[in-house]
Design a protein around this nucleic acid. Structure first.
Lengths: 333, 333
DNA sequence: ATTCATCTTCGAACCGGTTCGACTACTTTA
DNA sequence: TAAAGTAGTCGAACCGGTTCGAAGATGAAT
C-alpha cells in the first residue's frame, strides 16, 4: 500500500504539499498538482482511513444499533436499515452495524473507542437502556422510536397517536361503530415499545369521544400463532364491522385468514392498517393504510445526525414526528 | 477523552508500560498493574480504535457487502446479515455494512483505505464484478454464492445441485412423474444468480435420468404478480402431481394461492421447497423442504475469513458447499 | 526602492496508540 | 564469586496522515 510519503517522493514534494493538494485547503501550483495527481495514479494511492481518523478525529462512520427480537417481523426492520445506510452514504458516511444483544455496552464500546462520529438507534423503547450510554458518549445520536425521557436526544418517529385518530376518524366517518383493534404482541408492550400503546391509547380515546366501541387485542408474532389468534379475535367479535391492524406480522397473513373464513373486504368487513408502501408490495396488501415511511424516518434521522456532527452543540435537540398519511386502497365501506 | 498518556501520568509510569499492561505481552509487577488499572477506571480510559488500527494495521472490522434488488425478497437477506454480524462479534470483529449500488467501487473503497481487515460478499453472482476488486485488495474475502471463477476466493454456498436432486428423488420415490418447478424470477437468471440455474439444471437432469417430466417456470418477485403467475402455472399444468418451489417470494404466498384454488396439500398436490427454518416460522410454511441454513453459511464464511485474516497466505482457498438437509413436514404423498 | 500581500512550499509537531532495544535489579547456575 | 538469565520498566521510533508557522518568490502598492 502506497502512503502519502511515497506519493510525495514520487512527485518530488513534501508530504504536507500532497495533503494540501488532496484537501484543497491551500492553493497548489498547476504543475505541482499535476505531478501529484500522476503519482497518485501510478502508485494507486488511497488515504488510510485510520490515519486520517487519528489526525482529524473524524471517522466518517455512523454506528447503527439494532437488536433482533423473536417477536419482531424481519422485513420491516430491513427497510429502516436500508434507508439509514443509503442516506448515510449520500453524506459520505459508512455504517458500522451493531446487532449486539448488549445494547448499552455496544453503544459505549463504539463511542468511547471513537469508532464512529455518531449513532442511530433503531427501535427505541420507552425505558431504553441504551440512552444512558448514549448520553454519556461524546458523539451525537439520533433515535428512531420514542423514549420516555427525550432530554438531550433527537427523536424521529411516526406520530402514532395521530395515525390512530386518523384511522378511527376514517372508519367513524363511514359509519362504523364497532371496531376491532389488533395491536402488536404483548411482549412489545412489556418491553416498552411505546409506539404500541401510543397507537392503542389514542385509538381508544378517540373511539370513546365518538361514543363508539373499540375492542383491543394483542397480535401474535409467529406462525401458526398469528393465524390462530386472528381467527380467535374474529370469532369473539362477530358483530364488529371494521378491523384496525397495527402489527406487521398479522397484516401479512390477514388476507389468507379472511379468505379462509370467506370474509370479503370491504363487503363483510372494513380493514385498515399501518405499513409502508414497499411492505405492501412484498406481500399482497390491498388495504387502506397509514404509510409508515421507514425511508423518510431513516433519512431524516441520518440527515439531522450529520448536521449535529458537523456543528456540535449548536443544533437544538429535536423530537420530530412524521405526519401520517392515509393511503386509500378501497378496503373500507 | 483520556489517552494512554493520561493513564501513564496518573499511574506514574511510561506509556509503553500501560500498553504492555493492556496487552499482557510483557510481564508487569503486581503493584504497577494495580495502579494502572485504577488510573484506567478513574479516567474512564478506552483505547482509541483508529490509533490502534494505525499502529497494528488491524481494524477488527469486517466489511459486509450487499445489494438490494427489487426482485429479491427482503426477509431472506436479513437472516444472512444477522448471521454474519453475530459470528463476527463472537470473534471480536465489528461489521461495516455497505449497501452501495456500486459494488466494485465499494469493495475498493473500504479495502484500499484499510477500513476493514476482510470482507464478506453476499449474494455473489456468476460474473460478479466485485470479484476483481476483491482480488486486487490486500485483504481476504469470503463469498456467499458461487461465481464462475473461484480462483483465489473462498466460497460458501448451499449445494443447490444436490438439493435439487434430493427433492426430485424424494418426489420420484413417492411415485410422482409430472413435476412443476417454480424457479426464481427471470431477472435472477439474467443477473447471473448461479444458484437459480444450478438448482434448475440439476432438477431437470435428474428428472431426465428417471425419465419423468419436469416443467420449469420462472416465478415473480412482487405482488400481485406472484399470485398471478402461480395461478397461471397451475392452470397450465393441471396434470402435474407435485410442485417444487425454489423462490422465497412464491413460497410465502403459495398457501394463500392453493387455498383459494381449493387445492389440498398433500392430497391434491405434493409440495416441496427450499427455505430456512426461521423463514418458515415467520410465514406459515408447513412444507417439506431443504433447509437453506443462512446462519450456518454466514457463520462459516466469517470463521474462515477470520482464520485467513490471522494467518494470511497460509490457509488454502476453499469452496465449501453446505450439504443440504431435507426437513420432512408432511406435504408430500 | 521599499513595503506589503499573496502564492506556493516545506519542516516540524501532533493525533494516540504499539513495539523494539536497552537498562537496572534480582535470581540462578556453574 | 563471576557469568548468565529473567522480571520489570523506560525511551525512542514508528504507523500514516493533518495542520500550523515560517519562509522564499513574485507582484502590486507606496
Amino acid at each position: 500500500m502506497a502512503t502519502i510519503g511515497d506519493v510525495a517522493r514520487a512527485a518530488g514534494v513534501s508530504r504536507s504539499t500532497v495533503s494540501y493538494a488532496l484537501s484543497g485547503k491551500r492553493s497548489i501550483s498547476r504543475e505541482t498538482r499535476d505531478r501529484i495527481d500522476e503519482a497518485i495514479k501510478t502508485l494507486g494511492f488511497t488515504v488510510n482511513a485510520g490515519a486520517r481518523a487519528l489526525a482529524t478525529s473524524e471517522t466518517m462512520v455512523i454506528g447503527l444499533l439494532l437488536e433482533f427480537h423473536d417477536d419482531e417481523f424481519p422485513p420491516a426492520m430491513l427497510q429502516y436499515i436500508l434507508a439509514v445506510s443509503t442516506a448515510a452514504r449520500e453524506k459520505g458516511y459508512d455504517i458500522l452495524m451493531v446487532t449486539d444483544a448488549d445494547g448499552p455496552g455496544a453503544v459505549t464500546r463504539i463511542t468511547s473507542s471513537n469508532m464512529v462520529d455518531g449513532v442511530v438507534l433503531l427501535d427505541v423503547t420507552h425505558d431504553d437502556p441504551r440512552l444512558d450510554a448514549l448520553r454519556a458518549a461524546s458523539q451525537p445520536g439520533s433515535l428512531v422510536g420514542l423514549p420516555r425521557d427525550t432530554q438531550d436526544v433527537d427523536v424521529f418517529d411516526l406520530d402514532f397517536g395521530e395515525a390512530a385518530r386518523m384511522l378511527v376518524d376514517h372508519l367513524y366517518g363511514l359509519g362504523h361503530r364497532k371496531i376491532v383493534l389488533v395491536s402488536p404482541p404483548r411482549h412489545v408492550f412489556d418491553r416498552g415499545g411505546a409506539y404500541a400503546w401510543r397507537f392503542r391509547d389514542a385509538a381508544v380515546e378517540r373511539a370513546a369521544r365518538y361514543g363508539i366501541h373499540i375492542y383491543p387485542y394483542y397480535g401474535e408474532s409467529q406462525q401458526p400463532g398469528i393465524s390462530r389468534s386472528l381467527n380467535a379475535i374474529l370469532d369473539a367479535r362477530p358483530d364488529a364491522t371494521a378491523l384496525i391492524v397495527h402489527n406487521d406480522a398479522s397484516i401479512a397473513v390477514l388476507p389468507a385468514v379472511l379468505h379462509e373464513r370467506g370474509v370479503q373486504v370491504p363487503r363483510d368487513l372494513s380493514v385498515v392498517s399501518l405499513y409502508s408502501q414497499d411492505f405492501g408490495r412484498s406481500f399482497l396488501l390491498p388495504y387502506t393504510a397509514v404509510e409508515t415511511s421507514p425511508d423518510k424516518l431513516g433519512r431524516e434521522a441520518v440527515q439531522h445526525l450529520v448536521r449535529r456532527i458537523n456543528d456540535p452543540g449548536d443544533s437544538p435537540t429535536v423530537a420530530k414526528f412524521i405526519e401520517p398519511e392515509l393511503t386509500i386502497r378501497g378496503s373500507t365501506a
